[in-house]
Amino acid sequence: MLKSERQESLVALCEERGTISVRDLSRELGISEMTVRRDLDELDGQGRIERVHGGARSKGVRQTLVRHERSHVEKHELNAAEKDHAATLAAGVIEEGDAIYLGTGTTCEAMVAHLPAVPLKIVTSSLAVFTLLVAHPEYDSGLWDLCLIGGSYLKTTMAFVGPLAEDALGTLGLAHAFVGTNGILGTRIFGHTMAAGRILRAALDAADNRYVVTDASKFGRRDFSAFYELRNIDTVFTDGGIAPDQRQAVEQYCRVVC
C-alpha cells in the first residue's frame, strides 16, 4: 500500500469511528503501530486529524456532540413529521402474536399510533409509551398484553432504569426490539446516560430482531454514552432527510429503510 493510500485509509477510519486507537488502526490496516503513529503525527500536522493519547480523533468529532438533553416536551416539537414517518415504517414489520419491546423517546412513542390491530405482547420501560398504550382501543379490546418494566425513574426521559429493569429484560424472549437514539456516529449508537443505555442494550440483546427508529437529524451526532454497535442492528428506520453519504456509511453495517 502506498503511503498516500495508507494515510487516506487512516483518515477515513478516524472519520468513520470518531475516535480510534493506534492498536485498532494497526489491526485494521495490517501495518505496524510505529507506522501508524508516524502517519498520525504527520496527518495531525496537516490538520486532517487530531492526535489524542493512544490514537486519533476525527476533526469533526468536537462539533458532533449533543450538548444537553432536551426536555420531553421539547423533543415532541422537533421533527414530528419525520419521526412519524420512521415510526410508521418500523411498525410495519410487526406481525400477529409478536412479543416486542418499545424503547424510550418520542419516535418510539410515535409507533404506538401505527401498531397493528392484532394480538401482541408489548414490553416497555417508558412511562410515556405505556401511557399511550393503555389509552389505545386495542388494549381496551384485549388484543394487547402490556408489561411495564419498573426500576429507578428518570424524569427527563420518563423511563425506568437500573438493575431491576435490566434483570427483568434479561429474562425475556422478544421477536423485535425498537429503540430510539440521540445520535449515530461511526459504528456506534448513542444515548444521554449510561443507565438508560444499559436498559436499551438489555432489550436489544433479548430480541431476535433489533431496530433503531430515528429521524435523520441524529446521524453524524454523538451523545455522552455509546450503548450499541451498528453491526449488531438489523435495520435503522429513518426519514428521507438522511444524506447519501450518511446512509452509505450506515449500510456498511446494517440495512437502512427510509
Rank of each mutant, 00 (worst) to 15 (best):
V66D: 02
D140Y: 12
S9R: 03
V61G: 02
L172S: 04
I199S: 07
P163K: 05
V93W: 08
L200C: 11
K155G: 02
T238H: 05
E77H: 14
K3Q: 11
A165P: 04
A128W: 03
G220I: 01
T214N: 00
V250K: 07
V212A: 11
E28K: 01
G60D: 11
D44Y: 09
S152I: 10
G55Q: 01
G97I: 13
E5H: 01
V129A: 04
I149N: 09
F219S: 06
F130C: 01
L2H: 11
S141A: 14
G183W: 09
S225P: 00
V123P: 09
F178I: 06
R70H: 08
G30P: 03
A175C: 12
E5R: 06
A168T: 15
D44S: 15
Q46P: 00
N209I: 09
L29S: 01
S217R: 01
E8D: 04
V66G: 05
M1E: 06
V118E: 12
H192M: 14
A202S: 12
H192F: 15
V129M: 09
T107M: 04
V161L: 00
G55M: 09
R247I: 03
A206I: 03
N232Q: 14
R37G: 00
A165L: 03
I31C: 13
R201E: 15
A90F: 02
R6I: 01
V22F: 07
Y211W: 09
H136S: 07
E28M: 10
L2Y: 12
D98P: 03
F160R: 07
V73I: 15
G150Y: 05
A202H: 02
K3N: 02
L169M: 10
E69V: 15
A86H: 07
T104K: 06
D44R: 12
V61H: 10
G170D: 13
R70I: 15
T181D: 11
D39P: 00
D41C: 00
Q252G: 10
D24H: 01
G197N: 02
F237E: 01
L164Q: 03
R231D: 05
T104F: 05
R222E: 10
Q248W: 03
I199Y: 13
A226M: 11
R210V: 12
E69M: 14
Q63K: 14
A243H: 10
L172A: 06
E8I: 06
E96F: 00
Q46C: 05
P116A: 10
C147A: 04
S141I: 00
V73A: 15
H114R: 01
N182H: 12
H72T: 10
D145V: 09
C108D: 00
I189P: 11
E138R: 14
Q248H: 07
T238E: 05
L40A: 07
D140M: 08
V112K: 06
R27V: 04
